[in-house]
């Protein structure tokens, strides 16, 4: 069975239909880049997958959990499907270590010393071992985003969702975050990432999904899709972002 399955999902905000029937499957270990114009529904789709938004129709199954069931265990789902946001969203009142330990203790029920060990390990993985006791406002945007990735990784999710996680960063800080992403990718994590970094999509993703006006307009192998777009919409989108 596929790790993620979306069957004809529809999402409205008020009268506006934002997702107009999306179907896709994601296999374990797959890395999918989601691209498309602003407002095409990329974030909404990701948010539906981890239950931050409710769909009006269709079915979503993630790692065996039926997200769209009325009594879905969303907290369990979110342990399996980690999410990192554009705006980092670290907890400003907690230092790096405690940001990471919080959910380990409350959700995964680790004791303090075990949680501390995990925190140290994931922070080392993103290259910030020396910042374990720093507060978020003492870190650069790139460092905060790396901590956010570490915080999500610490939960040992089976799937990670990344929503434009480099878009709020100064250009010189984008590279360090992408390198961390590459590291996560190389360990076999299943990833779905909304991105405007076309080179990253081409080189790291297995597959590209192009969203247009609430629908999946193209879906195919990364290189092929980006180098030889089949539709005029994707061609014009790529022209706009590359030039």
């Amino acid at each position: 069975m596929s790790l993620v399955e979306l069957v004809d999902i529809r999402k409205r905000f008020g009268a506006v239909e934002v997702l107009k029937g999306i179907s896709l499957t994601l296999e374990k270990g797959e890395i999918v880049a989601v691209i498309g114009r602003s407002g095409s529904g990329k974030s909404t789709m990701l948010r539906c997958i981890n239950g931050l938004e409710k769909v009006q129709a269709g079915r979503i199954v993630v790692d065996g959990i039926d997200v769209t069931a009325p009594k879905a265990d969303l907290n369990l789902l979110r342990q399996r499907a980690g999410m990192v946001f554009q705006s980092y969203n670290l907890f400003p009142h907690l230092n790096v270590e405690r940001n990471i330990m919080l959910a380990l203790k409350l959700v995964r029920k680790l004791d303090t010393s075990a949680a501390r060990e995990v925190a140290r390990a994931v922070v080392t993985k993103v290259g910030l071992a020396d910042k374990l006791h720093a507060y978020p406002d003492e870190l650069s945007g790139g460092q905060q985003q790396r901590v956010a990735i570490a915080r999500s990784l610490a939960m040992q999710p089976t799937l990670m969702l990344f929503d434009e996680i480099t878009s709020a960063l100064d250009p010189e800080l984008v590279g360090e975050v992408l390198r961390v992403l590459e590291g996560v990718a190389s360990e076999g994590m299943t990833m779905m990432l909304v991105t405007h970094e076309m080179n990253f999509a081409k080189n790291v993703a297995d597959r590209v999904i192009f969203m247009h006006e609430g629908r999946i307009h193209e879906d195919g192998p990364a290189r092929e899709t980006l180098l030889e777009p089949r539709t005029a919409e994707l061609r014009s989108f790529l022209n706009a972002v590359l030039h």
Partner: peptide
């Protein structure tokens, strides 16, 4: 977003 960040980590509403 702070509510959402907590939710995305699997925290319950009370947590």
């Amino acid at each position: 977003r702070q509510w959402e960040a907590g939710a995305a980590l699997g925290l319950t509403y009370a947590q």
